Each structure stands twice: as C-alpha cells, then as structure tokens.
Computed example of a mutant assay.
Amino acid sequence: MTEVGKTPWHLWVVGGLSLLWNAFPAVDFTLTNLQNDFWLSQYNEEQRAFFLGTAAWANACWALGGFGSFIGSLLLLLRSRHAVPAFLASAIGLAGVSYYQLVQNGETLKRLFGQAPLYTTPVIWAVLLALIFYARAMQARGVLR
C-alpha cells in the first residue's frame, strides 16, 4: 500500500460512506422540487412554503451543493481526479445555501425549524471540508487519476 497510485483500503470506506451521506441532499433536492407528497408530508404548510418558495439562485446553489457532493463521491470511488473539483463546486453551492438560509432567512428558519439548522450546517461543512482535503490528499498521492 505504499506504492504510489495503489488504492488504499480507506478510499473504499470513505468513498462508500460519503456516497451514502451525499445521496441524501440529492434525493432531498429532487423530491422537494418535484413536490413529492410523501417527501413533503413531514413538514407543515409553512415549512413547505419556505422550501418551495426558495429563490431561484438559492435553489441552483442547493442543486450544485447536493449533486456536486454526490458526484464527487462517485468520482472518488472511480478514482478520478475530478472528485476534487466536484467537491469544490459543492462547497460553492453550500456557501450559497448557507447564506440564503442562515443570513438572509435566519429568523424565518429559526422560527420554522428551531435551532437544528444552526447545528446541522456546521456538521455538513465539516464533512464536506474533510472530503475536499481527503480527495486532494489522494490526488497528491497519485491514487486519483
């Protein structure tokens, strides 16, 4: 495992777990924007209106963030160097969504969802930054081509 380019066992673990983790925002974005009744049934009318009334630019950021990470995880498992830019694109999307939710609509979000977004957002950022650093390290070691 010390050979440059050989796939370390932890790439499969990190890639697999990140794929599962990052499947959620892709599914969430898709089902919310398709206005799937089952998916939206967990929210009251005011919460639904908040999600469905998201500004177009923030919705685009949500798509970029969610799908960027999901694709980044797939590319990590495929040992592609393009995993790094996919995760970086996801960070741009997450920055936009974080701004929209926490800065522009922080009071509304707090009223509708309580303190949860204030705790989940930093966790999402921590996981994404860890994936960016991990993918860059694997690229530097020649594992990602």
Rank of each mutant, 00 (worst) to 15 (best):
L31V: 09
D28R: 02
A60W: 10
F67T: 14
A23P: 03
Q139T: 01
Q101G: 07
A116P: 01
G68A: 05
F51C: 09
S41F: 05
P117L: 00
A23K: 02
A126C: 08
A83T: 00
A126T: 04
L102S: 08
N33T: 12
N44T: 03
V4Y: 11
E45M: 11
V84H: 02
F70H: 06
V14W: 07
F70L: 15
L64Y: 06
A137I: 10
T120Y: 11
A23M: 13
T7A: 15
P25T: 05
D37I: 09
Y134M: 04
F133H: 05
I92D: 07
A89L: 15
A63W: 14
V13C: 11
V84T: 10
G15V: 06
Y134G: 04
R136C: 00
A26D: 15
A23V: 12
W125G: 01
L19F: 15
V123A: 12
A130I: 10
T32L: 12
F67I: 12
R145D: 13
V97C: 01
V27T: 07
Q47L: 08
A135E: 02
G68I: 06
R136G: 00
Q115E: 15
E45A: 15
L77I: 08
E46D: 14
R79N: 03
W62N: 14
L34E: 13
T2P: 13
M138V: 04
T2K: 08
L128M: 07
P117D: 00
I71P: 00
G53Q: 11
Q104K: 06
Q139M: 08
T120D: 02
V143Q: 00
T108Q: 12
F70T: 09
A86T: 10
M138Y: 02
A63V: 15
S73G: 04
L52R: 14
W57T: 11
N22H: 12
A126Y: 06
A135W: 03
L78T: 11
V127N: 11
G5K: 12
F38W: 13
P122N: 00
A137F: 12
K110W: 08
T30W: 00
W125I: 01
L144M: 00
R79P: 04
V84L: 08
N59V: 09
G16D: 14
A55S: 09
W21F: 15
M1C: 06
E46P: 00
N36C: 06
N22K: 02
W12I: 07
R111A: 14
L74C: 09
G53W: 09
A130F: 15
A56Y: 15
K6V: 08
F70G: 05
K6H: 14
V4P: 00
L88A: 09
